[in-house]
Amino acid sequence: MNSPILALDKVSKHFGAIVIADGIDLALSEGEALGIIGPNGAGKTTLFGIVSGTVAPDSGRVLYAGRDITHISPAQRCTIGIGRSFQVPLPFAGMSVFENLVVAAAFGGRRREREVYQGCMDILDRCGLGEKANRRAGSLTLIDRKRLELARALATDPRVLLLDEVAGGLTERECHVLIGLIADIRRSGVSIIWIEHVVHALLASVDRLLVLHNGAFIAAGDPHTVIKSPAVMEIYMGIETDV
C-alpha cells in the first residue's frame, strides 16, 4: 500500500487527570474514507484538534504526506490541504454565507479572491445553500449552519477532509443527499475522516470504521463487522445504534 496521506504516530494528550488520547496510531490512505465512532467524551473531537493543529499533543507526531506537521500552525495545515468542519458550527456570523466560503477558498485554498467566486457558488449549490448565499451566516438555522461547515471545509480545497458530526439532526431525505455528496467528494480524490453518531450514514460511506473509547481505538476494520462486534455492543449498550 502507498504511504498514508495522514498519519498519527503514538499521539497522547491529557487534560489534567483525564486521558483524551493514549498513544494513538492512525493511518489514512490516499482516497480512503475512515469513520470514527465512540461515546461522548471519548476524545473524537480532540483528535481532530490534534490533526488540524488547534490542540497540541503532549507527545507523538502528526504526519501529512510523509511530512512531520506536529509543530506547524492550523492556518498552514489548512493551506497544505487539511480541511475541517466543526462539531459546534463556527460560522463567520457577521458575514454572508457566500463571504464565509470566499474566506475559506481565498485563504485556505491560497487563491486570488476573484478566482474563487464561481467555485464557491458551485459548492453552495451542492450543499443546498445556493439560495441563501446572501444571507448573514448568523441568521441561519442550526441545520444550515452545519451545511455551511461542510461547504466551507470543501471550499478550502482539501486533500484530507475532517468531518465532525455533519449528519446530526438531518431528516432521512437530507441524510440521503449528504451521503451522495460525500460519495461525490470521495470520487474527486479527497480522503475523509468522519466522526459521526448517525451510524447508518457512516456505514453507507466509509471503507473502515474505528471505535474510540477513553482515548484509544478499541476496534477497527470493516464497518459492518466492527459495528456488530461485542466491544461496540458493550459501549453502546442501551444506546440506539441505528443499524
Binding site: S52, T54, L90, G94, V103, R110, R152
Partner: peptide, 13 residues
Amino acid sequence: RDSELAAACNGID
C-alpha cells in the same frame, strides 16, 4: 472578528 478559531482553520494567519 467572528471566530478566531474558524479563521485559523480556514487558512488565515
